[in-house]
Write a protein that binds this DNA or RNA. Structure first.
Lengths: 192, 192
DNA sequence: GATATTCTGAAACAAATGTTTCAGAATTGT
DNA sequence: ACAATTCTGAAACATTTGTTTCAGAATATC
């Protein structure tokens, strides 16, 4: 009976996510967003909602992408240890070559304390990240690829929280070698 | 020949720091600040400057306090290892009992990427933190309190970046046991 | 093609933002 | 007490903020 939405919502969310990711929630204005999304604010409010709802969608989108990556890696036929080591190396590359820090980390510090719904999305994301590491560590232990004298749950927790500090270090020092050396030590701890 | 400044600048900076610390830079308005500082914006602009300059002073103040703490601990007569272990335990307590995350960490992610002067203050702070850890680790190694088969510079870098992830973890999960277990593992790695 | 419905664009909205103004109060050294 | 100078308070400033309005363009169904 009526007209359809003209703009591509998925593409618009992607664009908005990029802006939020780069500038953070509070430093991003609605003009910044509508400019990047190439839609009018009336369209935004008619479909997605206000700034907060848009941000939720963007954080959700960001964590969805990560989930896909973890799922893909977990379904690999290769050894758990090599999947883990590859993942660590790629995480380092993202830190070193990425334009911005992890959006989940930035959002945790900037908005999660004040916005329960953002926090919930990030908690779910963090649990998936934890589960990913835990699965691989457990599998590698069971197959004797790594030493199993440590609780895999503890190791997963510990390693899961480690990346965050590497992002901070790279913001401050922009020193790729520093990150790489920490990653090597990290892997050495695992494998020894 | 003329009137003196009426308000206590140090106390005002302290108050402003608390607001910035809690809300972050962008979410803090000048009204928030002048309310907390109990001064008029004209006085603020006459003495300290604009919002950015005030923030710089606050971050500087925050890192000054940390420096004092490190200096005090370094001058302790006790063994390097026990100073280090105590410090870790107290860091955990601050994470668990503190009202907010570390202001240096929050600021690194929110503003350091866009404000070079803030970044410089945080870099200096990070270097002091690194030096503190490095000194203790080196001393503990030299006295045979901990195993010395690892480069103290690497360990200091690695441990220095570790706290940040604990803050994020605590924001998301509010789980004191999780942090404590990671800290114990951390200490165990050091001492073994 | 008519019609009913929905979307879009531009403008307008009030409120909040960071900052400035300035008259008058306050305090210093003389 | 004087005079010169500086600080303070309240109000005003122009922008920018997030959000809403609404007339008209667009389209899916009949």
């Amino acid at each position: 009976m009526a007209r359809n939405v003209e703009f591509n919502e998925a593409a618009a969310i992607q664009k908005a996510m990029e802006v939020f990711w780069k500038k953070g929630y509070n430093a991003t204005s609605l003009r910044d967003l509508t400019d990047a999304m190439q839609i009018n604010s009336s369209s935004l409010y008619n479909t997605i909602g206000d700034k907060q709802q848009l941000f939720l969608r963007c954080v959700q989108h960001y964590t969805d992408i990560r989930k896909q990556d973890w799922d893909k890696r977990l379904s690999s036929k290769r050894s758990a240890l090599s999947v883990l080591v590859d993942y660590i190396h790629e995480a380092v590359n993202i830190i070193i070559n990425g334009e911005d820090s992890c959006m989940a980390v930035k959002s945790a510090f900037e908005v999660a304390t004040n916005d329960e719904r953002v926090k919930q999305i990030l908690v779910a994301d963090d649990q998936r990240s934890y589960q990913f590491l835990h699965d691989l560590i457990k599998k590698a232990m069971d197959k004797g690829e790594i030493c199993n004298d440590e609780d895999p749950a503890l190791l997963a927790d510990y390693f899961n929280s480690t990346w965050t500090g590497w992002y901070e270090s790279y913001i401050l020092h922009k020193d790729p070698v520093k990150i790489k050396r920490m990653a090597e030590y990290f892997i050495k701890q695992l494998t020894k």
